[in-house]
């Protein structure tokens, strides 16, 4: 048994339970948006989501058994990817729209008011339509999200101490549990063995697109902050500074 010591089915039900609740922006949006008002709504929502993300991460079986340093590094490296994958999942049944929250839905064209954000919206919409094409299942979605979290820092740090080495080995075993769980979820779709292997490849290849969009988004947010288009503060500021 891997680090989690539980069956793939049990692992998946645990990470589905860990899913954060729907989050609402709770602002009266004045349209048409200005660059400042759209960026302010986007960052307000991101800050709220980040708080729930940390609570979510702690519910991923085995995460809190990792060293605190690893927990911080993992979240620091992947937070925007996780936010973006959640956005794609919420948007998967709404072609051409980005469902940031039930009370904050944007059409692609509405991004025209923010310099440089249309390209990012287009990449997000393209990845979302790929997930739609693949008919992404909720069980697969939660596995991909856990994979992004646990895989985010595994190649950038080399353990120096025995504690770090132990934590890294735990992390690698945890990643195996997630891969096992994703393979199990795919095996439930009634596909041939070869189709299952291809699907696993299609889904994991999308992770590199998500990392790419996240990097673009990080650069864009840093630019918006540097130009004082939007005030970034609290947890979002901490995570942005750590990532740039």
């Amino acid at each position: 048994a891997h680090q989690s010591g539980m069956s793939p089915e049990e692992f998946i039900s645990r990470i589905i339970e860990a899913e954060p609740p729907d989050i609402y922006l709770m602002e009266d949006l004045k349209k048409p948006f200005t660059e400042a008002s759209m960026m302010m709504s986007l960052t307000n929502l991101a800050d709220k989501e980040l708080v729930l993300m940390i609570s979510w991460a702690k519910k991923i079986p085995g995460f809190v058994e990792l060293s605190l340093v690893d927990q911080i590094h993992l979240l620091k490296c992947c937070w925007l990817e996780i936010l973006m994958l959640g956005l794609m999942w919420r948007s998967v049944d709404h072609p051409g729209k980005l469902i940031f929250s039930p009370d904050f839905k944007l059409n692609r064209e509405e991004g025209v008011c923010v310099e440089g954000i249309m390209d990012i919206f287009d990449m997000l919409l393209a990845a979302t339509s790929r997930f739609r094409e693949l008919k992404l299942q909720r069980e697969e979605y939660v596995c991909l999200k856990a994979m992004i979290l646990l895989n985010s820092n595994v190649v950038t740090s080399s353990p120096q101490t025995a504690e770090e080495l132990e934590s890294r080995n735990k992390l690698l075993r945890l990643l195996d549990s997630v891969i096992d769980a994703l393979v199990w979820a795919i095996s439930k779709l009634g596909l041939s063995t070869q189709e299952q292997t291809l699907r696993l490849g299609h889904l994991t290849m999308l992770l590199s697109h998500i990392r790419h969009v996240s990097n673009k988004g990080m650069d864009h947010l840093s630019t918006m902050k540097r130009k004082n288009v939007v005030l970034v503060y609290d947890l979002l500021l901490e995570m942005l500074d750590a990532s740039t």
């Binding site: 609740p21 609570s55 702690k58 911080i72 947890l235």
Partner: peptide, 24 residues
């Protein structure tokens, strides 16, 4: 220490047993 300094809020939320959802 520098890591915890740089990630004060993240560090606190990771250590905090009360989940933010309950706090909210």
């Amino acid at each position: 220490t520098s890591l915890k300094e740089k990630h004060k809020i993240l560090h606190q939320l990771l250590q905090n047993s009360t989940s933010p959802v309950d706090l909210a």
